[in-house]
Design a protein around this nucleic acid. Structure first.
Length: 225
DNA sequence: GACCAGGCACATC
DNA sequence: GATGTGCATGGT
């Protein structure tokens, strides 16, 4: 492609400004949020987090000690609440069993080991693991999500059958490993997806409009999943 | 009242 | 190994 990731980044940044990710008060809260936001609008996940905060259970020990039904009730607004309760507890159990409940000890692992370890926990997939790596552990790992997938493919910047790892290496091979850059870039892509897909369906209003290929499909068309 | 959102695991072919 | 399906709430 002729346009560089650097140009794309600056175009998005100029349009939307800094996004202030991840909106959380601690690495643990990032992890909880990363599980709660899976396939869910952030607004719904945020309510669940506020409920946990109000109940004063936003710590490893207290959340793990919480009865399942109470946890389900507190995170109800995030949707998939039974599944997410299991997933949160899977993570907590792993942390308590192997790291004495200490995020700091878990985060002593090198990036590759930490990623593998997170992926071994049922309920943590590639995007959730990478979100934890970037936004909680502050490792230079690029987070790929549904928007990233759609933007790159609709603009034909990457092969249409590229999988998660291919999308990720598309960024990793073209950008310096920089936590702040990866943080902002991913957040800006999500911002683009949220704004453009929902509220400004006309492609001319998209900051990346000039790079939409001839006969290109507008980003607002989700296509099949 | 549909459609969508900052995925993931599991079943089935 | 690719493809389909269940999970569930709240905003537009």
């Amino acid at each position: 492609m002729t346009v560089t990731l650097d140009e794309i980044y600056h175009r998005l940044y100029d349009a939307y400004g800094p996004q202030g990710w991840w909106p959380a008060e601690s690495p643990f809260e990032v992890i909880v949020g990363a599980i709660l936001v899976q396939n869910t609008a952030w607004n719904n996940a945020q309510r669940a987090i506020e409920n946990l905060r109000d109940a004063d259970v936003l710590s490893v020990d207290r959340l793990y000690a919480l009865p399942v039904q109470e946890l389900e009730s507190l995170i109800h607004s995030a949707g998939y609440y039974r599944m997410k309760t299991r997933r949160l507890r899977n993570f907590l159990e792993h942390l308590v069993t192997h790291y004495d409940g200490s995020i700091d000890r878990l985060f002593k692992l090198d990036t590759e080991s930490l990623r593998d370890e997170l992926l071994s926990i049922n309920g943590i997939g590639p995007e959730t693991a990478d979100s934890i790596l970037l936004y909680a552990a502050e490792r230079p790992v690029f987070v790929v999500d549904a928007y990233t997938n759609r933007v790159l493919k609709r603009h034909r910047w990457i092969d249409n059958d590229a999988d998660y790892e291919m999308l990720q290496s598309h960024f990793a091979s073209r950008l310096e490993p920089d936590v702040s850059l990866y943080n902002e870039f991913h957040a800006l892509i999500v911002r683009l997806g949220n704004l453009h897909c929902r509220k400004t369906p006309r492609c001319e209003e998209c900051p990346l409009a000039q790079w939409i290929p001839e006969q290109g499909i507008c980003l607002s068309d989700r296509g099949s999943r």
